[in-house]
Write a protein that binds this DNA or RNA. Sequence first.
DNA 1: CGCCTTAACTTTACAATGTAAAGCAAGTCG
DNA 2: CGACTTGCTTTACATTGTAAAGTTAAGGCG
Lengths: 200, 200
Amino acid sequence: MASDGRYHHGDLRAALLREAEAELEEKGVEAFSLRGVAKRAGVSHAAPAHHFGDTAGLLTALAAEGFARFLAVKEARMAQESEPRGRFIAAGLGYLDFALAHPALFRLMFASARLDWTDPALCAAGEAVFDLLGANVLATRGAAPDEDETARLDLVAAWAMVHGLAELMIAGRPAALMALRGDEREAALRGIIGRALPPQ
Amino acid sequence: MASDGRYHHGDLRAALLREAEAELEEKGVEAFSLRGVAKRAGVSHAAPAHHFGDTAGLLTALAAEGFARFLAVKEARMAQESEPRGRFIAAGLGYLDFALAHPALFRLMFASARLDWTDPALCAAGEAVFDLLGANVLATRGAAPDEDETARLDLVAAWAMVHGLAELMIAGRPAALMALRGDEREAALRGIIGRALPPQ
DNA sequence: CGCCTTAACTTTACAATGTAAAGCAAGTCG
DNA sequence: CGACTTGCTTTACATTGTAAAGTTAAGGCG
């Protein structure tokens, strides 16, 4: 029985995704529980499995949605810049915005063994993010990563640097970086990300 | 009863740590099971809890041991180089060696919510690794990260770059990098890591 | 309107897991 | 030789994922 008394929820699928994200951020991937999600949504413990098959199905759907939002955050940051290099750095800052705002979801997306990468929706969402990275390399270096060796290295360096920053910052490391606030931190991050990009 | 028939195992603690690592690498952190570890060691399902308190205790002990080995791998790589910059890059390559050789253990050490960071052994082992990073920055830049602002950025940049490479490569990404073999890959990695270090 | 079909959930059931508590075996020290 | 202690086992129970069967409501068709 739905919490509002109705038997048919209306849009339980969307509600479960919402509650699943709350469960994920609160408990972490490792303590994530389907029954916990059901409890939050006020439905029977088996309702999530009905909609998503199993835990992997729910997490996969959540991750796919996450990649779409991730891309949107990056693009929003980029829209504030006009020069290719500034836009590339902005994409990196968006990457960090998202990771710090949704750490558990971020780790689910990038470092979980519980995702079903054969799922077309998840693959497509992930590739869209990767494509943006390629486009930024092309705009900055003037060569496409899948054709030019140097551009390929640019792509790896930029991705690794930003991804590493995200992972470390999620873990609160290094303390010296996490101690910086607002503009100071952003200025430091711009400088660090800049090291990985093609020279100006 | 121990698999060899003895009641007292002799060194069950060490055996459990060994089997726990096998369990971890085979099933991943998210599907890691105490009972699975016990089964591998041929002891009763509650034996691990007897030695380590609970799952967190076992994983924490495993991670602490992991940090010690991690440090050893980095130092082994560094021993082959004499110049500060070469040694710094070698430490990064050792970081990647370890991550790729023990991906699940690596992720346990750096990205698990199941570790008890109040444990002194774990803290000490982790700090020893961090100290090596600081020493490498000092040797390369000529300034200590806890005193000099630029050195602090050096530390963050180097760590983030190498850590990001580790996380991405564990996930098999990017495909272009993972397709490279042996010397080719190492040369590419040297170049990429070099971007994050103080200019030559 | 009443019946039938089907989709959306619930209930029931079961095996696997973590952990607490009590029990038993075997070395150790008096 | 007997009590103590340590190391492991047994038993027990709550929580979890998932399968399967049951129940409720919504919609189409006569």
